[in-house]
């Protein structure tokens, strides 16, 4: 039953604007309840003034978006979008973060080699030859670039 409702559910612009509206509302309530937003600067403007103003303004825009001519349109990129796929996006961002941590621990060469060769292997046609050779070329290329301009950093 529930899944049926879900399958009829469409991400129209109206739905998107309602989601955004609630996010802005939460932020607005958060801002109202913070100490800093009450603190007045010398020029008489409280620290919370601009954030609150812009949040209210964006909520008005959201309402505008919900009622204007395009409100029942579904953005084409969302038409066939499977929301389970979002998990892949998050995973790939975590892989990026992992690569970065590796970069700090092991330095540029080893971590970049691992990251590039593995990701090219899994994304590409799955040939070790292609992935290893391109990885090597890219690493040498990037290293020459960065060492040419003598970037001071602890990862090289």
């Amino acid at each position: 039953m529930g899944s049926k409702i879900f399958s009829n559910f469409k991400f129209t612009n109206k739905v998107i604007s309602i989601i955004l509206l609630s996010i802005f509302l939460i932020l607005l309530i958060y801002t109202y309840n913070m100490d800093w937003s009450q603190k007045t600067a010398r020029d008489g403007i409280t620290a919370g003034f601009f954030p609150k103003a812009i949040l209210i303004l964006s909520m008005i825009f959201c309402i505008g978006m919900a009622v204007n001519t395009y409100s029942n349109e579904v953005p084409e990129s969302l038409e066939e979008f499977d929301f389970k796929n979002l998990i892949y996006v998050v995973i790939s961002l975590f892989i990026c973060w992992g690569y970065f941590l590796l970069l700090l621990e092991l330095g540029f060469f080893i971590s970049s080699f691992l990251f590039l060769s593995l990701s090219i292997y899994f994304l590409g046609p799955g040939s070790w030859k292609v992935s290893l050779i391109t990885t090597l070329i890219i690493i040498v290329f990037v290293y020459t670039f960065f060492s040419l301009i003598q970037v001071p950093s602890n990862i090289f």
Binding site: Y99, I120, I138, V142
Partner: peptide, 19 residues
Amino acid sequence: PKYILIPFIIMLAIIGTYV
């Protein structure tokens, strides 16, 4: 090809941001 470009650019982006 995309499968080379994507890791390459992500790598450049991460290193670039950090450096």
